[in-house]
Amino acid sequence: MKKYLGPLSKDNPILVQTLGVCSALAVTAQLKPAVVMAFSVTVVCACSNFIISLIRNTIPPRIRIIVQLLVVSFFVIMVDLLLQSFVYDVSKMLSVFVGLIITNCIIMGRLEAFALSHKPLPSLMDGVMNGLGYGLVLVVVAFFRELLGSGTLWNHQVVPDSWYAAGYLNNGLMILPPMALILIGVIIWAKNRVTER
């Protein structure tokens, strides 16, 4: 069990391996799209890990990248269609970033590094854990950005009106793109303090 927990902290895909930042940060201005994004990536990562691992012995090595891309894009399109059908508002917020899950390096990276050489069930676990590790960072970043930037969480106001009356202001910079990067930098700093003393 222990070896699967690495992606959540020690081997976190974003913080340590710097994978998959691309498609992620733009959806962290608010908590809700970040959670949906984290969930979608986890599903895609787990499913494609599982499938690739199932068919790993039949894949000709010369075309394995193409096969991986096909399988990943299949699941991404499925997720996209489902989001559009069942949680329309959120799918609008995520716009093209759902599609960009395809090029999320975490997924391709896990397929190459794990699924191609392991049995289906461990691969499924590995996919879930990496997806969650990625989602964790996303949610933490989104938590601070929404709280400090808009004074809300999950669209509910949490900063009391009396604070605003006393002169408290939302930090508008928090919701702009650059702050996401700076927050990640700070999270990495904090994580390094905790894990390697």
Binding site: P178, M179, I182, G185, V186, I188, W189, N192
Partner: peptide, 10 residues
């Protein structure tokens, strides 16, 4: 990486 992200932000 930490400082790299922060610089990109700046």
């Amino acid at each position: 990486n930490g400082i790299a992200y922060i610089i990109t932000g700046l």
